[in-house]
Amino acid sequence: MTQQANTPVSDPHPEGFTHINAKGEASMVDVTEKAVTAREAVAEAYVEMQPETLRMIVSGEHKKGDVLAVARIAGIQAAKKTADLIPLCHPLMLTKVKVELTPEPEHNRIRIESLCKLAGQTGVEMEALTAASVAALTLYDMCKAVDKTMVISGTKVLEKKGGKSGNWQMASDSSGAQVVSVSGSQAASPSAVGGGVVKVRFFAGLRETLGCEQLPLSLNAEAVTLADVKALLITSHPDWEDALSAKNLLMSVNQQMAKASALVTVGDEVAFFPPVTGG
């Protein structure tokens, strides 16, 4: 939600705050005219604690139960509530929220990483930050009885994709907001971050029928649906139409089963395969 607004109100800070109008009052940015694009944001936070606290969490000895699982769910729930908490934040239809907690015993801390995705008109970094923050607060809440010295730190946005400001990533060794890669999405070219390409893989009988194990597929937009990917494949390989039109064909995006309406963004790994027959 940090993009420049196309509001009719003249902005006193052309390069500044978008949530303040000409009179200096707080206002929600009008995004009605903004294009719908695939958005994605990654944020992180750390909870530092005593080694013994971390050990209890990892070994599952904690009196309140599975701390990591509860914190993870709390983060996901929180992402959905972001618009209720942050006054000028738009309510969003999130299509994906992922929160991961990784114990780092060498640093006596737990690292929280959150990912939020949607196809929409405004960014999702506030949702990602909220998810990471609330997961951190939940960790604190569940462990405060054994360790009151825990410190929540390092809450920040790591990466942002989509929208007018394009792709952005925090420099890995940076102490502040150093932009290491910015690419305008309007000018999405094969040289943009991720190469403008998705990796498509085929398995089992389908791989044999098509005679193809994997191929790079160029996208003409920054994000498309899985159904679009299939259509693009058929356009470039008309003889694949029958095999790819099979009703029971399964599909995945980044190694998660997905439906035809699932969003695919540049850099993703997509796979098509027949119904599974393990066991």
Binding site: F203, A204, G205, E208, N248, L250, S252, M257, F273, P274, P275, V276, T277, G278, G279
Partner: peptide, 23 residues
């Protein structure tokens, strides 16, 4: 759920030839 969700595929090798097992 392993049978319906985990991506494994069996190919059987029989006296009549090889074929992919259907779900």
């Amino acid at each position: 759920f392993l049978k319906t969700r985990a991506p494994f595929w069996k190919k059987e090798n029989t006296r009549q030839g090889d074929y992919w097992v259907s779900a």
